[in-house]
Design a protein around this nucleic acid. Structure first.
Ligand SMILES: [Zn+2]
Ligand SMILES: [Zn+2]
Ligand SMILES: [Zn+2]
Ligand SMILES: [Zn+2]
Lengths: 136, 136
DNA sequence: TATAAACTCTATAACAACTATAGAGTCAAT
DNA sequence: ATTGACTCTATAGTTGTTATAGAGTTTATA
């Protein structure tokens, strides 16, 4: 049994994050020592790593909660997992497209000012004052 | 002089957002009518549209505050504007790269489950349980 | 003139996923 | 006995909004 500081080191999650996950019921309430310190076993390490892996893929806490619930019903069909992943992938791709458009506009804007101009003649500020291109 | 609801319609910013910008000192405190309603003129419309344009480019509130301050000192050099824009563009591009890597991993993960499997044999859940690929 | 609808006001909480802080308690070593 | 490292709870801050409650104002209608 390890304490929260060690769990933090082993998993790379901060101590506060671990306590936060407990409060959010992503991980079960830990056993306590006589002095009221949280105690964790190997299974807790595994579960926290699972959560960390999910978070590194930008899966949200509710999504992870759903995955954990499915993990607990091994006989169920995979359809729910797959639907969630598809939706999540869609959202990531939409965000990439959005940022890509944004990036083009920013570069265009940036080109409108050469260094050593004064603010008064600045193309960036002038363009920002003009009506934005519709982005819908 | 128009009231906040009309300013909201004209600019496309919500009423709460306008009040929020005032609290954050992005726009000046509006004049008030006898009944304590905020009153705006054409200049306020212009400034709010400027802010909206900036936000549509994901510029942060502090960044916009800096741009507005520069706008008020027309004799200054543009270097600060340019540095900020360069930094901002860098961050947007970094985020695009990050999401692109993420997307590849998500698609790989998604391929590891064909429909109609049970959760027990699910490649997605199994792979999420395994140690994540290092992404540094 | 009474009243209702539509608008506005302030203050406060929620969102997401943490991060940071304060103040107190626990434990191991000197 | 006391230091230092660790842990505990509770609370607030982050970012840019959005949503709500409860009260006041203005405009239109009966
Ligand atoms: Zn998602
Ligand atoms: Zn310039
Ligand atoms: Zn920025
Ligand atoms: Zn599956």
């Amino acid at each position: 049994m390890i304490k929260i500081g060690e769990l933090s080191k082993v998993t790379g999650c901060s101590v506060q994050t671990i306590r936060h996950y407990e409060k959010e019921h992503l991980i079960a309430s830990a056993e306590r020592s006589e002095g009221n310190f949280r105690l964790y076993d190997e299974a807790a390490v595994e579960q926290l790593l699972f959560i960390k892996h999910c978070r590194s893929l930008d899966l949200s806490v509710p999504e992870i909660r759903q995955l954990l619930a499915l993990n607990r019903s091994p006989g169920a069909q995979c359809d729910d997992v797959n639907r969630m992943m598809d939706r999540h992938i869609e959202q990531v791709e939409a965000r990439i497209q959005e940022l890509t458009r944004l990036n083009e506009q920013l570069r265009m804007l940036r080109r409108s000012c050469s260094n050593r101009r004064t603010v008064e003649q600045c193309g960036i500020l002038r363009n920002l004052s003009a009506t934005p291109v519709s982005s819908g």
